[in-house]
Simulated scan of single mutants.
Amino acid sequence: MHSPEKTPVDTSTLFAQVGFNQLLDLRREFAEDGVSRLVLNARPELTNNFHNLHGGVIMTMLDGAMSSAALSRSGFRKAVVTIEMSTAFLKPGRGRLVAHGKAIGGGRSVCFCEARLEDETGELVARAMGTFKYVSA
């Protein structure tokens, strides 16, 4: 029996549709061939008691960079959900921050990724590793 052909799915716009990314003003500069870059300008309402970028915002940036890398690795034909994520915080985040994501392995159902977050001087603020499951959009 012949199964109906699926219409190709385009998940390239999913990032912009996430309300939390809009609230943070988190921007994806690019995502292609398993590599991504996100940027955010820290502002007072995103900081902790020490006036540094809140750890949850840092983790959101790293997660977004890795998931964007995973999406681009699939050619934006699948969606992803985070299965696990490990984060190391190395120094306070301030100013303009850039998250770099990279898909480093996996197969048809999961993607292994890594990310690093740098401040405007290029110093490493945090890094992460994560596993992402491909799902239907």
Rank of each mutant, 00 (worst) to 15 (best):
Ser86Cys: 10
Asn48Ala: 14
Tyr134Gln: 03
Gly95Lys: 00
Arg108Asn: 10
Glu45Asp: 04
His2Gln: 10
Met1Trp: 12
Gly75Glu: 06
Arg73Pro: 02
Met59His: 09
Thr121Trp: 01
Gly130Gln: 04
Arg108Thr: 03
Thr87Gln: 04
Pro44Thr: 00
Gly55Leu: 00
Asn48Tyr: 15
Arg127Met: 15
Arg27Gly: 02
Leu40Ser: 05
Cys113His: 06
Arg96Lys: 15
Ile83Ser: 15
Arg37Ser: 11
Thr13Arg: 11
Leu14Ile: 12
Ile58His: 03
Leu23Met: 15
Cys111Phe: 04
Arg94Pro: 03
Phe132Cys: 07
Lys78Phe: 08
Val80Arg: 01
Pro44Asp: 03
Asp63Lys: 03
Leu38Tyr: 05
Gln17Phe: 09
Met85Phe: 09
Asp63Ser: 07
Tyr134Val: 02
Arg77Pro: 05
Gln22Trp: 00
Ala88Trp: 02
Lys6Asn: 10
Arg116Cys: 10
Ile83Pro: 08
Gly34Cys: 06
His2Gly: 09
Gly93Ala: 09
Leu90Cys: 02
Arg116Phe: 08
Ala88Cys: 04
Gly105Phe: 13
Asp10Cys: 08
Thr60Ser: 12
Asn21Val: 09
Ser67Lys: 04
Pro8Trp: 10
Leu124Ile: 02
Cys113Glu: 02
Asp10Glu: 05
Ala88Asp: 10
Arg94Asn: 11
Gly75His: 10
Gly93Cys: 05
Arg37Pro: 10
Val135Cys: 03
Gly130His: 02
Glu118Val: 12
Lys91Asp: 06
Ala126Lys: 04
Gly107Asp: 12
Phe20Gln: 10
Gly130Asp: 05
Ser36Asp: 07
Ser36Glu: 07
